[in-house]
Design a protein around this nucleic acid. Structure first.
Lengths: 201, 201
DNA sequence: CATTTAACTTTACACTGTTAAGTATACCAC
DNA sequence: GTGGTATACTTAACAGTGTAAAGTTAAATG
């Protein structure tokens, strides 16, 4: 019987092929400079085949970004959390977050800048990977507040402040590579440490 | 004789016409969704006329962004600086910066995200408006450090940390309007105050 | 073997940024 | 005023875009 399963497997395989071709092209040439035809060429199918797996180009982008978020989540979760020192964990997580953004700058921008432009109304929906990432942050922040290391402030606000800081420095370093930045790691660490210091009780 | 001058004036006028048509379209429909033909239609000239005034679409974008930066600089400089309380001035400037970004979100993104993507290698060149904006920040930071309110840290790094913070929160609020942010002004103020607090001696 | 279904391709449409060539008009020296 | 030239602008064209509709092929089912 297993033909149906085989077919489904093959279909999934092609989907994955399209996805990784798209990611590679998006990352190397920029979303706007990648045409459906280019992707099709790379996987040696006709352009319209892509539409059998993805609604349109934006949907393709969205799927690529989901993968990116998952990868970010995994990277963060690999960091083993020392509950006795939540601030240090937070610090490390911040560094990992920025490092991720700088290691895959194009993927980062696709996910956090380009995608919101094309996919209106994504507000961190229930069960999404994006929500899981933010939950990770929430948990750490919560710990810092409960242990009274941080000011007794709203968990949400505190988390959002931290996100703003790491997102800001990541975006600037990506978008203005020629700006006369002070030493990159110094800047990143200072951003994270300053924000954490400012949040302390 | 003045015909030459009149001609030059007319030419400049058309240039301005193109610029404001382009800005309006870029802002309302997004850079990528605006074609040279659309701009041309709006000003009732043929598409190729635009090329008599701007090298290409990216150059047009660049000119639009220069205007935006100038507007930002003016907005910042209107704030009268109370040298006896540089921290309060810095706080206000931060709020003004974010408010500017949120008032003209598309212009902000064009300038700080889209343009760097198309104009590689803009590293805050000598005498540019971007440099003037950053100089404004430098001056305020310098004051805070000299008066020993801030930690004795590198002026550059300190300024870059502040820029990261305000840029981060601005970008997030623009790109994820549906995210469950805490009250917007609270978030903005908390970001600014937290960063400043973290920088204090 | 016949028929249905799924996978994939061909063709086509209306659009894109930009270049090259063409045209008309306003200016200048005589 | 007339001839020539420079300026402003347009027309036409090229190679490319995202994607819908229709057509084709091959495999799975009854």
């Amino acid at each position: 019987m297993g033909t149906k399963e085989r077919r489904a497997r093959e279909k999934e395989q092609l989907r994955q092929q399209i996805l990784s071709a798209a990611r590679e092209l998006f990352v190397n040439e920029g979303y706007e400079n990648v045409s459906m035809r280019k992707i099709a060429n790379k996987i040696e199918y006709s352009p319209t085949t892509i539409y059998l797996h993805f609604k349109d180009k934006a949907d393709l982008l969205d799927s690529v970004c989901q993968e990116t978020l998952l990868s970010l989540l995994n990277t963060l979760e690999q960091l083993k959390r020392d509950t006795s020192n939540p601030v240090e964990t937070l610090r490390k997580s911040g560094r990992v977050y920025v490092a991720f953004g700088l290691k895959y700058p194009q993927d980062y921008k696709l996910t956090f800048v380009i995608r919101p432009q094309f996919q209106k109304g994504l507000g961190l929906q229930e069960g999404s990977i994006g929500e899981k990432v933010f939950n990770y942050l929430r948990a750490m922040v919560s710990e810092c507040i409960q242990q009274k290391i941080f000011r007794q402030m709203d968990v949400e606000t505190t988390g959002q402040v931290l996100w703003s800081a790491v997102h800001g420095v990541t975006m600037l370093l990506i978008d203005f590579p020629d700006f006369p930045w002070t030493e990159k790691d110094t800047l990143i660490n200072t951003v994270i440490d300053t924000t954490i210091e400012g949040l302390k009780a």
